[in-house]
Design a protein around this nucleic acid. Structure first.
Lengths: 115, 115
DNA sequence: CAGCCGTACTACGACAATCGTAGTACGACT
DNA sequence: AGTCGTACTACGATTGTCGTAGTACGGCTG
């Protein structure tokens, strides 16, 4: 079975997180589940990777955190939510462009079995 | 200008090197030039990255080194050539499969401007 | 024949993202 | 009362890449 190695995905974990935050603010556990769902179970971000990405991205100004209750009534345990900033949107957009270029280059060195 | 970041390409430098060695044995300087040529100048591997990749890959049994003269007459300075092993071919092939999967997954989190 | 450019490396330490392991703590359900 | 799922935090190790530096040989040019 082929598995995605961390060295490959390195540098795109941030992009995946931001993709989710582009839609609406979210928090660690939910983002983790979303990534698994969107990738149809093909990829699961490690918890430690996820939370350290939050710290880094907040420091870089790509995201902002706020603590809130899961429901408006104020019930349940408070969570740390993250929302994407304008700077983060710009960063995400650059990452997408970078991906296109990277893909183009890497493919030149890939030989598919079928060909 | 969009540039390929090292974190993205991380894990594919080996693949690029092996792609070149799949064709014929080669050596550092030449591989470096080949990567630049094949990628049409879009990507240049750093010297230190290249040589440390050699060490690692030889230790892992993906490549074998031998020292030889550049021409059959025995003229010129001797170089360290590398040839891919069967184990290396297998590894390369796995990397190609892995790439297909990675590409599939990452694209799910990419939004292109045109769309 | 001196000097420089291109070739062909080696050494070393720093960095940064990921990972493994571990532990905490709350709430809901049984 | 205990377990499961949720929601994190801490910490140290690992690994590939990078920056900087230095060595050394051969070929060409002035």
């Amino acid at each position: 079975m082929v598995e995605i190695s961390s060295d490959v995905i390195r540098g795109y974990n941030d992009t995946m997180i931001l993709y989710i935050l582009m839609r609406e603010p979210s928090y660690g556990y939910n983002i983790s589940k979303e990534i698994k769902r969107i990738s149809d179970g093909k990829y699961a971000i490690k918890e430690t990777t996820l939370y350290s990405a939050f710290t880094r991205m907040e420091k870089n100004g790509y995201i902002e955190s706020f603590v809130a209750n899961p429901d408006p009534e104020g019930n349940g345990k408070k969570r740390t939510y993250y929302r994407i900033t304008n700077h983060g949107k710009e960063y995400y957009s650059n990452k997408c462009e970078e991906w296109d270029l990277t893909k183009e280059v890497v493919e030149l060195f890939i030989e598919d079995k079928g060909e």
